[in-house]
Design a protein around this nucleic acid. Sequence first.
DNA 1: ATAGGGTTAG
Length: 765
Amino acid sequence: MSNKLMTRNVQALHLFNNFNRKIAYLSCLNSATGTLSEAKQAHAGALKAGLSTQPHVATKLLALYASHQCFTEADILLYSHPQPDLFSFTTLINASSKFKNFHRTLTLLVKMLSGRLFPDTHILPSTIKACAGLSALKLGHQLHGFGLATGLASDSLVESSLVHMYIKCSALKYAHNVFNRMAEPDVICGSALASGYAKKGDVSNATMVFDEMGKLGIEPNLVSWNGMIAGFNQSGHFLEAVLMFQRMHSDGIECDGVSVSSVLAAVGDLEDVIIGVQVHGYAIRLGLRSDKYVVSSLVDMYGKCGCALETLRVFEEMEKKDVGACNALISSLSRNNMVDDALKTFRKYKGQGMELNVVSWTSMIACCSQHGKHPVALELFREMQIAGVKPNSVTIPSLLPACASFAALAHGKAAHCFSLKRGFTDDVYVCSALIDMYSSCGRIKAARQCFDRMPRRNLVCWNAMLGGYAMHGMIKEAINIFQLMQSSRQLPDLVSFTSLLSVCSQCGLVEVGQSYFNSMSKDYGIEARMEHYACMVSLLGRAGKLEEAYSLMNEMPFEPDACVWGALLSSCRVHHNMQLGEVAANRLFALEPKNPGNYILLSNIYAARGKWTEMDKVRDMMKRAGLKKNPGCSWIEVKNRVHMLLAGDKSHPQMAQILEKLNKLSMEMKKSGYLPDTDFVLQDVEEQEKEHILCGHSEKLAVVFGILNTSPGTALTVMKNLRICGDCHTAIKFISRIERREILVRDTNRFHHFKDGVCSCGDLW
DNA sequence: ATAGGGTTAG
């Protein structure tokens, strides 16, 4: 053999070997379906063998990477692919869609289209699914159009993905249309559509689709029934949910834990414990005692029906305690005013290492906020973050009322910043709570800013803003916002009118208030409730139209409650009307014998009229009611007498006696922590108070009250006014004084009444 | 190469 020939042979052999290696590699690649490291090895091998740009190899590698969600690597291969084909795109698009990487799915679709490749039946469903995942209705709609133009829309996979996409985008009409045109409609699409309507609260369409399924030859299955029950429950159609459950039962269809937990939630909201007990028994018969969802809804249902003991029993019977059930228990206890038990439960399971979630923390915070344990609520919020549980958009409005009642502006601001950071400020509940917090802390401008920045508003937001202006007695702004509300086509409700009437009453706008009161039922079909009558009585009463106020009370369709009588009594005190004052006071003594404020008001009227013996009688009544121990009350009572003496005959024989009594009381008050003033020259504190509020002189206001006394009731009033002046620092000082003492529940209620705009029975001390 | 149903917090 010549040398030349030799070299040729070697070359041929080399080529042959190389070819063999490639063949070996390709077969190896084809069998490589396993791990990610295998995929990487295959990729490395392809690079080494110079095969990575071979269409076949690239496509295979791409699929390997995609199956491991390694989209960056897959992308590199796609971009360096010599001729990216439909198959490469299909594998990548479907993988992205499968792993819910919807943005990538749609980016790939666009890239594919720009390469003049068009989706087929393999790609269309997964791209439509991506639109569903991103709620991209427009694009989904376009893909639908493409499907119609190309005839792909009649593919059954495309059809069902369209139905689901339209449901997810809450375009139920479109979904319904596609469903109606399906060649072979299936249970899955039918149930999804029916429950979609149910979730949206469209009872008639939900029922129609559900019933039509039978006509189309599709038998509704358990999931279809459950979807209806759950949907009705979620949209607040509780009765429909229960009826559906009953229909299911009478149709002889056996339900499961899903049906039971959904129907129980609805029963709870109907507060129908009789049905609740029946379903409970049914659940036990079906052996659902250990279903955590069933137990949670049972606990919640009994709680909503006011059966706290049953709630506890059901929870105790649970073998392995579940967080959800524990959360339901906490909220049930809270609902039934068992705040300490709720806290105990929370601490107990936290201590036992139960993994508490956002709902657990939020329920506990809401519970404390709602029951006046404001510092605890704030502390829990801090603890929650230390525990690494992220607050969500429900946590914020649960916490904010605590900041508001506490005038804890710094905490409220922090919560606001937190919401901004986390993007919660588009949430109507968050914003409404912020508005309320800022108004309560005296920052009405900040409240308005929150209001103006809202992308969408509902009734709650409008009421929060209106309430804020009412709280500050800003009549112009309140009327303004009410008009804005009407031009925005937002119908007002009971709460809106409470604020409006309250602010009119505060500002003495009798006619305006009366016209609002009349238009309530005339223009909006809203029947006036107790709080509206309280406002009206206060409105008329403050203006001195006491007889009119009294006759309005007689015309009321129901018996006036303590609030309404209190409004009348307060007005009687302002105008020194003894006759009506006595009527009101006597009713109040019967309605709330333990409320010292009523006695004081009457005593004040007597004092103004110089009725010495009547004052004695009131004092005796207080004693009999067991209220004589309150030095603050006695103090005011005695002070009134001194005023009388000073105003009248200074050489009154009882002067020395009274002064002695006053001194004794002063000592007593000092001992029990009150700060009495011995300087009763401050005759008309109320006048000063009004002036300072109007001028925003919070320090002076604080001084006036600081000198007078600091009984809990006073401190509350001061705090309220300080907040209106925007001086939260001083307000907080007052709060700490209140918290060191026990406040009568009634006092707190009055305070909240004020806050909500019914200030008619304020002016306690 | 997949699709429909559950409780509890404002």
